[in-house]
Design a protein around this nucleic acid. Structure first.
Lengths: 335, 335
DNA sequence: AATTAACACACAAACGTTTGCGTAATTATA
DNA sequence: TATAATTACGCAAACGTTTGTGTGTTAATT
């Protein structure tokens, strides 16, 4: 811009205002400036602008693992509405590590992100790094895996309800011994899913048997196979299982198949998240649709509202996204 | 920092140097500065630093669709090595739109990204926006979907070879009429895969029949089903098919199943990318492993090398990542 | 015709760092 | 003891914008 100004023999302030169509610049000079800006291939320096304006139009996203479908689709949702609103998105992957999460927040603070959207790492229980954000006035939206100790904006589904629905469905189709593959209970969602599971069992007069609850961590394929083999070897085999994610549910189905058990006849299976695999596996998987993409969109909208809202009275807001049970062959045999 | 300096009664330059362990600052003042920096919760302003240093430690990534497994895993690979090297990553999703790609590049130039890693949108054939990068001295790495008209760093697999292997495998197991679901031929990879397909047919004395080549675009599930229904309705049904991605290959398997055709007996199927679904579908899918994560890693390493390399003699470099055919049930029946 | 308003632009400070250079005070060298 | 070298810091410019204020010129108002 300094260059442009020199060439045109005007001041930088005039150039700056002309390029933004400020009314105080005459029609003629404005056009002249714009034209030569294009001709000379002028590229505005956003980092200088960001420094001066104290605004970066940049929002940071912190997720456990980008390559899990739930997260990549929520990022996709975030990216869509952020771009629409003139923000760009940078991604930080924690791999569920607390330290990486802390580092990511630090980088985003230092880089003056206008706001942060985060899904908590499994390891995270101390959340001082997010509390620190409050001092810097950087708005925060937690999504999916949130934290009750932290007053912040939240976007989530009702995991308790979803799990309840899932397990009640199992009970309704006649399961008497319903197992559960639980996730890391440090995480809000997995705790809630476990509670929902228990509540549904009680409601349906089924006893809660600790032997039927498998406590996983990252809920990988491997964990799924491990648990599946365990539970299929039990003396009194469960006849239904609610898995805290689709990945482990798929592993259960595969293991059952390998070991010549029938799904759903021998054991009915329910997953969580309605990832693409769930439609494709045979038998297709009953699961909870949690609308990851929409969660991303809602998170971004909420964050941007907070960024741009001048009404500083609103401290925080919580949005619950709908969820629904999608019944497929893994709980209901084909006719 | 200005604040810190005022409180401590030293100059900002001293603070700046102290925090970076510059030798010219005395042990004592250095420690004092560091300590109060921590106590006061001082957060360095990277955007000011970026402006002054003319370096952002920020690399931009442009991909078609984050929620496709190939891309999310390559992003994951990029993110891993970038973070390791002290860079952070921002993501731009083109949804295969040319305009969005151009906009993304513009934003990244304006934001003074230290480098860009991109996978071309399907729509993209004009690549002036990347050529413009050369003037700004922002290094570029294209990965997977590259462009021969553009002199730049590239990371890709040999799609021709991979397709050739895939189709030769089909021929070897006895397929006589091999069909192909091709992607958008505007894209380097899909053109190469088509060529590889044709070459393998010729090598194996099979005639190339245009009726057996289905020209897709984004290779979605829907496209897959459409083509599958078409080809399964042909008078002389093909007995093998090479699909340019896993998504359509899975659709073909599903459609065949619905229509009571047997895979691989009636028709053998090969996909591309070894996405998670390919292991899980029944019959499991023979496919090409293209090492998306490693491509991401290699791209980031190459880019960072270019960013940090002072040897300006190297203009560009091309890295070919290995690929292998993974043979599964969709081409070889279980015993 | 005198006063006010509107217009079109320039000046200069500010955003918060980094960095080349200058300069005292101390220590080493001849 | 005079000179040089070293140490430890400050000064001020620079990075490229944005923006409040100042100013000269022209147009509108009474």
């Amino acid at each position: 811009m300094t260059g442009l100004a020199k060439i045109l023999g005007v001041s930088t302030s005039t150039v700056s205002r002309a390029l933004k169509d400020h009314h105080s610049i005459g029609e003629e000079t404005r056009e002249k400036i714009k034209k030569t800006a294009i001709n000379l291939g002028y590229i505005p320096n956003s980092v200088a602008s960001n420094l001066r304006r104290r605004k970066t139009n940049h929002i940071g996203v912190i997720v456990p693992r980008i390559d899990r479908y739930f997260h990549s689709s929520s990022i996709s949702g975030i990216e869509e509405v952020a771009n629409e609103a003139g923000y760009y998105v940078s991604i930080f992957q924690t791999k569920d590590s607390y330290i990486k999460e802390v580092e990511s927040v630090a980088i985003l603070m230092s880089n003056k992100a206008d706001g942060i959207i985060a899904c908590l790492a499994l390891e995270t229980s101390d959340i001082d790094h997010y509390k620190q954000l409050a001092n810097t006035h950087i708005p925060l939206v937690l999504f999916d895996r949130v934290c009750s100790d932290l007053e912040s904006n939240k976007v989530l589904i009702n995991d308790y309800d979803a799990a309840f629905k899932a397990c009640e469905h199992l009970a309704k189709i006649g399961c008497k011994k319903i197992a559960h593959i639980a996730g890391n209970l440090n995480s809000s969602i997995f705790k809630a899913r476990l509670e929902g599971y228990k509540a549904a069992l009680i409601k349906n007069n089924l006893t809660i048997n600790e032997d039927l609850i498998f406590y996983g961590n990252i809920l990988s394929e491997e964990e799924g196979h491990l648990f599946a083999n365990e539970l299929l070897s039990m003396d009194t085999r469960p006849d239904g299982i609610f898995c805290a994610n689709d990945i482990t549910a798929v592993s259960v189905i595969q293991t059952a198949r390998e070991r010549k058990f029938s799904v759903p006849k021998d054991i009915a299976v329910v997953g969580f998240s309605n990832t693409p695999i769930s439609k494709i596996i045979q038998p297709s998987l009953t699961t909870i649709e949690d609308h990851a993409f929409e969660m991303g969109q809602a998170s971004a909208r909420l964050l941007i509202k907070q960024i741009e809202d001048n009404d500083k009275n609103i401290v925080s807001e919580t949005i619950i996204i709908r969820n629904e049970l999608i019944i497929r062959e893994s709980t209901v045999p084909l006719e």
